[in-house]
């Protein structure tokens, strides 16, 4: 298994009229070929900005990468000349967006847009490209592909449009696909169809997949590895089956506890108190400390590094062992804050 993508200590800032916002503040992660990394976080956690920086489609200005390294097959994309980078983008790594309707060009037929991938990147003749476009639409299981190739994006349903987006992303058989909330706008039954398709294509093509989402359910279904982001930082990384069984960061734990589940019916849900911080005013120390049930003085001053919790597992919590093992050093008994 080879490391496809390695992001190291990435920093992204946004200059807005309220000052400088550190949208991404030292994020590192790696994706292996054929593996799915889920980046989990709430709105404003920096998960999409990181992906945009990796793809090289960050809106800049106002966004700016201030530090870090994004290595694709060991080559740093950030120092690469734009021309070479463009050859990577689209062909070797591709992106799937949440809102397929706005990501597709409304005035060009779907077949044309798919064919364009081949004519521009591969110099395929128009006729061949057209045939390949239909083939692709078949591959993502759009019924009656030949007839529908001439249709425009708005003539497709939400689920079908997302398939078109997927077709576009996999057109040139990329090694890495970044899917930014690919099913958030879709109904559950359609979401299941689309996630199934993605998983199958990934298996067939041995792609690396970065799945950006806020949905803990989707993550559990498809991911191999997970990185949880909070306020522009990664707070926990782990193999997926480990994290659900025993989270090592209080934020992850809180998220998992707050999902309505069968055994919690009729009881109050656990709610993480307070609100996520604005990127303009990230609390000092651990960014999660004002909302954290474990927080103490050290958390308010000292920013926790990513501690190695177990092989392949890290947590950015000074007191991860308490979170993970449910023990604590200075045991005062009882005290749920009720």
């Amino acid at each position: 298994m080879s490391t496809l993508l390695e992001v190291t200590d990435l920093h992204v800032e946004f200059r807005t009229r309220d000052g400088i916002a550190k949208a991404v503040d030292g994020v590192s992660y790696a994706v292996q070929a054929g593996q799915t990394l889920a980046v989990l976080g709430e709105s404003g956690s920096g998960k999409s900005v990181t992906a945009q920086a990796v793809m090289g489609i960050l809106d800049s200005p106002p966004g700016r990468i201030t530090a870090g390294r994004i290595a694709f097959h060991g080559q740093d994309l950030l120092t690469m000349p734009e021309r070479e980078r463009r050859a990577v983008r689209g062909a070797r790594m591709a992106m799937i967006f949440q809102d397929a309707l706005s990501a597709l060009n409304p005035v060009l037929s779907v077949g044309h847009q798919l064919a364009e991938m081949f004519t521009t990147h591969r110099g395929t003749s128009r006729k061949d490209a057209r045939a390949k476009a239909v083939e692709l639409m078949d591959r993502v299981r759009i019924p009656a592909a030949r007839q529908r190739a001439g249709d425009f994006p708005h003539q497709f349903s939400g689920g079908m449009r997302q398939r078109v987006m997927i077709a576009m992303a996999i057109a040139l058989e990329p090694e890495l696909v970044i899917a930014d909330e690919p099913t958030t706008a879709l109904d559950v039954t359609v979401q299941a169809q689309v996630m199934d398709l993605l998983a199958e294509l990934q298996r067939e093509m041995d792609m690396g997949l970065i799945l950006i989402t806020h949905d803990l359910g989707v993550v559990a279904d498809v991911a191999d590895h997970i990185a949880v982001m909070y306020a522009g930082r990664i707070v926990e990384t782990a193999p997926v089956h480990r994290i659900y069984a025993a989270p090592a960061h209080p934020y992850t734990k809180g998220l998992l506890e707050s999902i309505p589940r069968l055994d919690r019916k009729g009881r109050e849900l656990y709610a993480i108190k307070g609100l996520p911080p604005s990127p303009h005013h990230v609390p000092p120390g651990c960014a999660f400390n004002p909302r954290c049930p474990l927080a103490r003085d050290r958390c308010r001053t000292e920013q926790p590094p990513l501690y190695e919790v177990a092989a392949g597992r890290t947590s950015a919590c000074h007191y991860w062992h308490e979170c993970l093992h449910g023990t604590r050093d200075s045991g005062t008994p009882e005290g749920a804050g009720r």
């Binding site: 734990k253 049930p293 474990l294 103490r296 604590r328 005062t332 008994p333 005290g335 804050g337």
Partner: peptide, 9 residues
């Protein structure tokens, strides 16, 4: 937080 901490523990 000494208290709520227990709960997580």
């Amino acid at each position: 937080a000494q208290n709520p901490g227990e709960a997580v523990g």
